[in-house]
């Protein structure tokens, strides 16, 4: 399990990273935390000619308020999701999901930008970006652009990122009073990829849900919003009938893959159970 040989370049600016990438045509890879990339290299599942280390690019760092958004630099590590007060205050769903991301030592290295860019359909943060209606700030040679999470995840490990582009930051709309979140996942062991996971952000007026965004992970080839379930719940009080209707709607929202150990019907069942439990917690003011 030793990687193929490659060259290494440590970029200090985004421009340096782009230049290096261009020089190596398509055979370069950016590395940040590397917690998924390094095993892929060791297993020789990937074999770039050049590894461009972007962890020393200052522009990709930092968590701060920018207007109605919390700007979370792409290099923000998973462990900072647990320790950074601004995240606890303005993006509590990321704080809630972070303890479920792998293990402590992985969280010390893994980055938010890396997780979003990889777009593992079983990972927590890509789905939470969906639930939060986050915007992904992307830099390319032609400049910067912001893509809504809804438009970012395209297919299995395929995103709106063009070759050579990298994620600068994730912008999360600030958490407001009247909003509630809930997160949980069903994993066989602590830190494992979940059999099903879900996070949600709801905006309440009194006991009525004005608006809700529900995102699942480990249910298909991409992190997936449960849009029909959302529409069942929008404007409703979360009573048993609405919860049941939302659970039923998941049949249309999710298309679980055929997997060797979790049959699609079981995954759908687990998603419904999880949705029911999380809506219950939401109702309790979770």
């Amino acid at each position: 399990m030793k990687a193929r040989a490659f060259s290494y370049f440590r970029a200090r600016t985004i421009e340096e990273a782009f230049d290096a990438h261009v020089r190596c045509a398509d055979e370069a890879r950016y590395i940040a935390g590397g917690q998924s990339l390094v095993p892929a290299l060791s297993l020789r599942l990937q074999a770039p000619r050049l590894l461009i280390d972007i962890t020393h690019i200052a522009e990709l760092r930092g968590v701060r308020r920018e207007g109605e958004f919390l700007r979370i630099g792409a290099l923000t590590r998973h462990c900072e999701m647990l320790s950074e007060p601004l995240i606890a205050e303005f993006a509590p769903l990321l704080r809630a999901a972070a303890p479920f991301v792998a293990h402590p030592a992985i969280r010390n290295r893994g980055t938010l930008g890396g997780s979003i860019a990889l777009a593992d359909p079983a990972a927590e943060f890509p789905a939470m970006a969906l639930a939060l209606d986050a915007e992904i700030e992307i830099a390319g040679r032609s400049g910067k652009r912001r893509v809504k999470a809804d438009d970012f995840f395209i297919d299995l490990f395929e995103t709106a990122l063009e070759p050579g582009e990298l994620i600068v930051a994730v912008h999360v709309p600030l958490f407001k009073s009247g909003q509630r979140i809930a997160f949980d996942e069903l994993a066989r062991r602590r830190g494992d990829y979940a059999q099903v996971g879900c996070g949600m952000l709801a905006t309440y007026t009194d006991k009525r849900v004005d608006d809700i965004r529900i995102a699942f992970f480990s249910v298909g080839s991409v992190p997936t919003r449960a849009k029909q379930a959302e529409s069942v719940l929008a404007g409703a009080v979360l009573d048993a009938a609405h919860v049941a209707a939302a659970q039923a709607a998941l049949a249309n929202d999710l298309m679980p893959p055929d997997s060797d150990d979790v049959p699609p019907a079981m995954r759908l069942h687990l998603a419904r159970v999880l949705l029911g439990r999380l809506l219950g917690r939401l109702g309790e003011g979770a």
Partner: peptide, 11 residues
């Protein structure tokens, strides 16, 4: 979990 849910006929 699959074994248990199958035994319980939950899916």
């Amino acid at each position: 979990p699959t074994t248990v849910l199958k035994a319980l006929k939950r899916f």
